[in-house]
């Protein structure tokens, strides 16, 4: 792989549990390239979220190296990792995590405010993102007025409005029915193809797995397989 955007070498992550510690990730070695549509797959408790958090610089590895866009995660200052997330990473969560006091437009606009983008540019980017997820007509709605599927589409728009290099999606379909799941997967696939944004999913949902180009299996914190799927 040429110039991976994420490079993980001999990485382990331990959590302190009382006197001893719990190894949530064991000696992980992985590279992720630009434009990938990859899933970390495995049963609950296998360490998927932990891995995503480390890649997203929300957490630091206990040992080993994790390089994201050329930056060593464990050496980033708090400001540095905020900056990395703000500029280059998008997050999508199982529970959407929208700001309830903001309408759809404002929720999507928020990351751009953090980037201090100029108003004209901002407006265009927000409208584009809403169009991508098909929610232009809901711009003025509050999250409480939307269905789960719509909320997750807002979250996708929020994650991609700044055109990040990499989007990290932790169980994005876990709270959605089949129809909505497929809808947001189509949307993300479309974005991936058009903007070559990389996606890394954490999931155990077969519907998601069917869409993936690459499937990394994680069991008890160990990578047990890493397969490229051609059929997806």
């Amino acid at each position: 792989m040429e110039d991976p955007i994420v490079r993980i070498k001999n990485m382990s992550k331990a959590f302190p549990t009382g006197e001893s510690e719990f190894l949530a990730l064991k000696n992980v070695n992985l590279d992720f390239g630009k434009g990938e549509f990859t899933g970390i797959v495995g049963p609950s408790g296998s360490g998927k979220t932990t891995l995503l958090n480390v890649i997203g610089s929300l957490d630091t590895p206990t040992s080993g190296e994790v390089e994201v866009l050329g930056l060593e995660v464990s050496q980033l200052s708090q400001k540095g990792s905020s900056e990395l997330r703000s500029r280059h990473l998008g997050f999508i969560f199982q529970t959407y995590n929208l700001l309830p006091v903001y309408d759809v437009y404002e929720n999507v606009e928020f990351p751009l405010l953090l980037l201090k983008m100029a108003p004209n540019e901002r407006r265009k980017a927000v409208m584009d993102a809403l169009e991508w997820v098909g929610l232009t007509d809901k711009a003025q709605s509050r999250p409480a007025q939307l269905s789960g599927g719509q909320c997750q589409r807002v979250a996708i728009a929020r994650a991609m409005v700044k055109k990040p290099t990499l989007v990290l999606a932790d169980e994005p379909t876990a709270n959605l029915d089949t129809e909505n799941s497929l809808h947001i997967l189509d949307t993300m696939q479309k974005i991936n193809a058009a903007l070559s944004t990389s996606f890394i999913f954490a999931t155990h949902d077969q519907k998601v797995i069917n869409y993936l180009h690459r499937v990394i299996k994680l069991i008890d914190g160990k990578v047990v397989s890493d397969d490229t799927q051609t059929g997806a």
Binding site: L58, K79, S82, R85, L89, F93, N97, L99, F110, L114
Partner: peptide, 16 residues
């Protein structure tokens, strides 16, 4: 707390 985590993920600094 969840909101704080999300704001952090969006790239807000602790100070902000």
């Amino acid at each position: 707390r969840k909101e704080i985590g999300m704001l952090s993920a969006l790239g807000m600094t602790k100070g902000q």
